[in-house]
Simulated assay, not measured.
Amino acid sequence: MTETDLVPVFDGHNDTLLRLYQSKDADVEKLFIEGTQGGHIDLPRAKKGGFAGGMFAIFPPPVEKSRRSAVPPAPSDSEPLPPEVPHADALASTVAMASILFRLERASALTVCRSVGDVRHAMAQGSIAAVFHIEGVEAIDTELTMLDVLHAAGLRSLGIVWSRPNAFGHGVPFRFPSSPDTGPGLTDAGKALVKACNKLKIMIDLSHLNEKGFRDVAEISDAPLVATHSNVHAICGHSRNLTEWQLGAIRESGGMVGLNFATGFLREDGRMNADTSLDIMVRHVDSLLQALGEDGVGLGSDFDGAMIPAPIGDVTGLPKLIDAFAARGFGSALIEKIAYRNWLNILEKTIG
């Protein structure tokens, strides 16, 4: 299969900026453009895999750890929430990763997109279409002054929490088996943030919110509900996955869900184990299609932020997933919706 034959993929979530930030390499542009060992996304591999763009997340990492997160190595039904990250530390790492994003744009490695028109144009030009996303808003003050600054810089999507508490709400812990009903919902500042995002046309990502926080957003927001990288709780009973009522609320709002490739959110045993087949990924997509309809399902890989199935490996494995959809009997129109068209449609409804 040549690059011209590839179905383009617009992806709901990656942590590539965090990987580059934690590399401590002074020339991250070269690292991304020329490619590197390890990780999941760089420019050569993106082109090989048909990766056309996506939400490029900025995730303020835990201060006490250099690795990506405090995700437990084995399932636990009592895993505590990681500690909060101080505002000053989150602000410093957020600005540093935003700088990497804009340096990559200056190096012509990608295009930072502020509207769906920008996304379509970048894809047509063969440039990676990057939407500036924040996963956990610890860098934003409760007066929301930094929100205005970040929006002016290009922020168009955010997850109010990662899987830890902050001044705006409570994340869902990494518990298996567990429902997502694990704690209180949004604070008053969190509710004000939702309204501000609606006004500024910043998409809100529900992926790491607990059940009460999800309900708060559903009640307040006038935008479609979106979970950029989550799976089906009925298949994998992880607290990070979406229950039947949550999927119903998303469908009622005209929203969508991106399939998370993280094996611990795919497998029935909740384990982070790379020996995971494409079949379970297709099974989650089938279930999402039943719950949301064919306009409500996309991909949200969590590349560079999770252990993914070995058959995928990295971004070059995306065509294998597309082939698995075709083998399941999905037609070309449905495959294109899942691969990129549904994301473009939801971005048109949320960021404009």
Rank of each mutant, 00 (worst) to 15 (best):
M1D: 06
T4A: 15
D5T: 09
V7M: 10
G12Q: 11
N14A: 00
T16C: 01
L20G: 00
K30R: 14
K30Y: 00
L31E: 05
F32K: 00
I33Y: 00
G35P: 05
G38M: 11
D42I: 02
L43F: 02
G49H: 07
F56C: 00
P62A: 13
P62V: 11
S66I: 12
S66M: 13
R67A: 14
P73M: 12
A74M: 13
P75D: 14
P82D: 12
E84F: 05
V85F: 11
P86D: 13
H87I: 08
H87Q: 15
S93P: 01
T94L: 07
L104W: 00
R106E: 13
A109E: 02
A109S: 09
T111Y: 04
C113L: 09
S115F: 10
H121W: 03
A122G: 06
M123C: 07
A124D: 12
A129R: 03
V137P: 01
E138K: 04
E138V: 03
A139F: 07
A139T: 07
D141C: 11
E143A: 14
T145V: 13
A153P: 00
G154D: 04
L155G: 03
L158W: 05
L158M: 15
W162P: 05
R164S: 10
G169A: 04
G171W: 05
V172G: 07
F174H: 15
F176S: 12
P177E: 07
S179F: 05
P184I: 14
G185Q: 10
G190Y: 02
M203N: 05
F214H: 12
F214C: 10
F214N: 08
F214D: 10
A218W: 11
I220V: 10
D222W: 01
A223M: 13
T228R: 07
S230Q: 10
N231R: 14
N231K: 13
V232H: 15
S239Y: 04
S239E: 06
R240Q: 14
T243N: 12
Q246C: 10
G248P: 09
R251D: 12
S253E: 07
G255L: 08
G255P: 08
M256C: 15
G258N: 05
G258Q: 06
L259V: 14
L259C: 10
L259S: 11
G264V: 08
R267V: 13
E268P: 13
G270I: 12
S277P: 09
I280F: 08
R283W: 09
H284V: 10
V285I: 15
S287H: 14
L288H: 07
G296S: 09
G296I: 06
L299P: 03
S301I: 01
S301K: 03
A306Y: 02
M307A: 14
T316V: 08
T316W: 01
P319F: 04
P319K: 05
L321A: 05
I322T: 04
F325C: 02
A327D: 12
L334G: 03
I338N: 08
L347F: 15
E348W: 07
K349V: 11
